[in-house]
């Protein structure tokens, strides 16, 4: 790791100021992705801005028909939260199955979403649930937030504060893990929202999370495994590597969609 200055601001405003004043500074939340990257010297930030001292970034609340999760809320807190388990059980279950116990004890939802690793779990949930990303300066809908591999709509210095999830009537998630890294090889989150609309998000398989619109249309007509049985994910543009080709990942999208649907009930 290259050396860096370390700051631990107590407020969002202070954090944003440091990040704005020094464009080479990076925020650190749980650090479960950032620190391994720094150890391999893949990045050279001048300073790390530790967000763990900012109380307003944490917490889980039910706000009417929405579930609001602070960006610095840890996976383990989400996994075990009765509020989350009641409102969106699929999200609690996702949190309980990502990374390992030690990652879940440190890693945060906001950190993961801001990083937007194509093989991370939460982007599928946020996309399928049509989440809203509340930052220090604005709100960003999920469809605009995710901008491809490791890219989001966040501007330099902009901090994710909380994620608002509309509470769906049905939601389910299934994934196939990369056998080695245990990140997502192909995952599908299906959700039927309160307004009756259906959203299906695919993670792991492509260069970033994306919506499977053909499945959305089919499930909007009929919320059943049969409705999507004939839908073939196009492998064009999907990831292929030593662990599986694009064709394999495309196939898994169909399998995981079926299983996610079964989870959703």
């Amino acid at each position: 790791m290259y050396d860096f200055a370390y700051h631990k601001p107590g407020s969002i405003a202070d954090a944003v100021k440091i990040l704005t004043d020094d464009p080479e500074a990076r925020p650190i939340s749980g650090g479960q992705t950032l620190l391994p990257a720094l150890k391999h010297r893949l990045a050279h930030p001048t300073a790390l801005v530790d967000l763990s001292g900012i109380a307003e970034l944490r917490g889980i609340q039910r706000d009417g028909d929405r579930l609001v999760i602070g960006a610095m809320t840890k996976h383990y807190e989400i996994q075990t939260s009765d509020v989350v388990k009641t409102a969106i059980p699929a999200l609690a279950k996702m949190a309980g199955n990502l990374g390992d116990t030690q990652v879940r004890n440190r890693g945060t939802m906001g950190g993961s979403l801001s990083n937007n690793d194509p093989a991370a779990d939460y982007p599928a949930a946020a996309m399928a649930l049509n989440a809203t990303f509340r930052t220090d300066r604005r709100s960003i809908p999920a469809d605009e937030f995710f901008q491809g591999m490791f890219a989001t709509a966040l501007e330099p210095g902009e901090l994710l504060v909380a994620i608002e999830f509309p509470i769906p009537t049905k939601a389910g998630y299934a994934k196939m893990r990369n056998p080695a890294s245990r990140y997502v090889m192909a995952g599908v989150f299906v959700a039927k929202l309160a307004d009756g609309s259906v959203r299906v998000a695919v993670n792991g398989a492509g260069p970033g999370v994306f919506r499977q619109e053909e499945m959305e249309a089919a499930l909007a007509k009929s919320w059943s495994a049969d409705a999507i049985a004939g839908i073939r994910q196009d492998p064009d543009g999907l990831n292929g590597d030593i662990h599986g080709s694009a064709e394999y990942r495309a196939h898994l999208v169909g399998v995981m969609a079926k299983r996610a649907l079964a989870e959703a009930g």
């Binding site: 292929g240 590597d241 030593i242 662990h243 599986g244 080709s245 694009a246 064709e247 394999y248 196939h251």
Partner: peptide, 19 residues
Amino acid sequence: ARIWGIIHGGGPKGAPAIA
């Protein structure tokens, strides 16, 4: 991926050895 390729015939295209 290798088993899937065998079951579904042909196997993945152009992928290196594990798969």
